[in-house]
Design a protein around this nucleic acid. Sequence first.
DNA 1: ATGCCTCAGCTCCTGAGA
Length: 255
Amino acid sequence: MKLATWNVNSLTVRLPHVLDWLQAHPVDVLALQELKLTDDKFPHAALAAAGYQAQCFGQKTYNGVALISREPATAVVRNIPGFEDEMARVIAADVGGLRVVGAYFPNGQEPGSDKFAYKMRWLEALRVWLRAELARQPQLVLMGDFNITFDDLDVWDPVGLKDTIHCTAEERAQLQGLIGLGLVDTLRLFEQPPRSYTWWDYRNFGFRRNQGLRIDHILVGESLRPRVSHCAIDRAPRALERPSDHTPVVLTLTD
DNA sequence: ATGCCTCAGCTCCTGAGA
């Protein structure tokens, strides 16, 4: 079984890339973030023609998440129960015997800002909710655009970007809080090329210079760890014409 | 350097992203 996550930065613009990618990488589940469209504009027909059904949770202009899967997804939950949020950031469902959570974590803009405070509240609510979810169904996968680096290995310039957004101690403490629930950072279970990132700034030739961050992650419950056979970043879509600024991460589980 | 690029939208500029 294969699962993947990809922040597409507008599904309208990136649909051709997504369809091409699914054809070349027929994963069982693909979590998308930053759809930037409302549910009435979601391309169900194009995905159905490719052999996929979708559960979507969109909004106008910003945010928006979806779970695309070969098999139907059930018990769908949108956003964090009990956490009032105007933004469409989370979609969870049962797929293939797993609880799959796709998430677009808040950016946070700048430490000390209102948006940073919102990010921290959101992270706290996510952790509390996932603790209960894991108790109910330990076979859980949390994947998406976390907008947080684990450590300096995830940062192209850890000195210059020290304590900036995605790299602060507060954000990283919350990310470790998720690990503390019994979740595993699957990419780090396997040897990776040096300077492995999932996002590169559009500006300043960020991708060409490999000046990026690893902020898209796939975490699994400890009980799934024995089934994790591979995890890797697929840089290829970032090199296409008119790319998203993020690239997919792919997890392989033994059946 | 309050810059660089990309996207959506009350579209010829602005806000947001990261």
